[in-house]
Amino acid sequence: MLGIAAAVLFFIAFLINAADITTNDVFSSVNVMLLGLTLLALHVAGIGAGRPARRR
């Protein structure tokens, strides 16, 4: 789930950068990209992957 959210944030950062949209400092393309990288790192670490598989 966090991987999908990261992909959405990367796409938004790409659109902000490609369209050369002027935003305030909070929603700049670099900040959105860094949020996406944080979510991607959490996804790779295994956080937010859903329920863990039960061991028998």
Rank of each mutant, 00 (worst) to 15 (best):
F10N: 13
F10E: 15
F11S: 15
F11E: 15
F11P: 02
I12L: 15
I12K: 04
I12R: 03
A13T: 04
A13H: 05
A13P: 07
A13C: 08
L15D: 11
L15N: 12
I16F: 01
N17W: 13
N17V: 02
N17Y: 10
N17T: 08
A18R: 14
A19D: 11
A19C: 11
A19G: 06
D20N: 15
D20Y: 07
D20K: 13
D20T: 09
D20R: 14
I21S: 05
I21E: 11
T22E: 13
T22Q: 13
T23D: 05
T23W: 00
T23I: 06
T23M: 09
T23K: 03
N24D: 10
D25P: 03
D25C: 06
V26Y: 01
F27P: 00
S28I: 03
S28D: 14
S28N: 13
S28Q: 09
S28T: 10
S29P: 08
S29Y: 11
S29R: 04
V30M: 10
V30W: 07
V30I: 13
V30D: 10
N31H: 06
N31S: 05
N31M: 07
N31A: 06
V32D: 00
V32Y: 00
V32W: 01
V32Q: 02
V32E: 00
V32L: 12
M33A: 15
M33P: 00
M33D: 02
L34H: 08
L34Y: 12
L34S: 06
L34I: 15
L34K: 07
L35D: 03
G36H: 05
G36E: 00
L37M: 14
L37V: 10
L37C: 14
L37S: 14
L37A: 12
T38W: 04
T38Q: 00
L39N: 01
L39E: 05
L39A: 08
L39C: 15
L40D: 06
L40W: 12
A41E: 07
A41V: 13
A41N: 06
A41Y: 08
L42F: 11
L42P: 04
L42G: 09
H43L: 04
V44D: 06
A45M: 13
A45S: 15
A45F: 10
A45P: 01
G46V: 05
G46D: 09
G46Q: 06
G46I: 04
I47N: 07
I47C: 10
I47S: 10
G48F: 04
G48E: 02
G48T: 02
A49S: 13
G50I: 03
G50M: 02
R51L: 14
A53F: 03
A53R: 11
A53L: 12
